[in-house]
Amino acid sequence: MNAKEYLSQAIWLDQMIDSKLEQLATLKSLSMKVTTSFTQEKISGGSFEKSRMENTIVKVIDLEHEINADIDRLVELKKDIQETINKIDDLNYQLLLEMRYLCGKNWEEIALAMGYDRSTVFRIHGKAIKEVKKIKDATKCD
Rank of each mutant, 00 (worst) to 15 (best):
A69H: 02
N106M: 08
A111P: 07
E64G: 12
Y93H: 09
D89C: 03
N106Q: 03
E98Q: 05
E109Y: 06
R52G: 05
G104L: 14
K59G: 10
L97Q: 00
Q82R: 15
E98G: 01
I81G: 00
C103M: 15
E108H: 04
T56K: 05
V60H: 05
Q82I: 04
Y101V: 00
A111G: 08
I57T: 02
R73S: 12
T56W: 06
A113Y: 03
E108M: 08
M53E: 15
Y93F: 10
V60N: 05
E108S: 04
I71E: 14
D80S: 11
L91S: 11
I110S: 00
D80L: 11
D80M: 12
I110C: 02
L96K: 01
I81N: 00
A69S: 07
M53K: 09
E66K: 09
V75F: 11
E76C: 03
A111V: 06
A111Q: 10
N68Y: 13
G104S: 15
L74F: 10
A69N: 06
C103P: 02
I81K: 01
I61M: 04
K79P: 01
V60Y: 09
Q82V: 02
I81W: 01
K59E: 13
E64P: 02
E83K: 13
I71N: 12
A69G: 05
I88H: 02
I81V: 14
L74T: 06
E76Q: 12
Y93E: 01
H65N: 10
G104Q: 15
D89L: 12
E83T: 08
I61V: 13
I61D: 14
M99T: 04
L96W: 00
N68L: 06
I71L: 10
K105N: 11
L95C: 04
E108C: 02
V58I: 14
E98P: 00
K79M: 10
L63G: 10
M99C: 03
D90S: 11
L77M: 15
K59Q: 13
K78S: 07
D89H: 11
I67D: 09
Y101K: 05
I85N: 01
M53R: 08
K59F: 13
M99F: 05
N92I: 11
N68V: 09
N86S: 10
N92E: 14
A111R: 03
M53D: 12
C103K: 15
V60M: 15
E76Y: 06
L77C: 07
E64H: 03
Q94W: 01
M53F: 15
Q94M: 05
I61N: 07
I88S: 02
I61P: 11
Y101L: 04
N68M: 07
E108K: 14
I85F: 03
I57S: 10
C103I: 03
A113S: 14
E83P: 03
H65Q: 04
L102Y: 06
Q94A: 04
R52D: 09
D90V: 11
G104N: 14
G104C: 13
Q82T: 08
L102R: 02
E66V: 07
V75H: 04
D72V: 05
I71Y: 07
N86Y: 15
I61W: 08
H65P: 00
D62G: 08
K78Y: 03
I61S: 12
Y93P: 00
V58Q: 15
I88P: 02
V58W: 09
L96I: 05
N86Q: 10
N55E: 08
L74K: 08
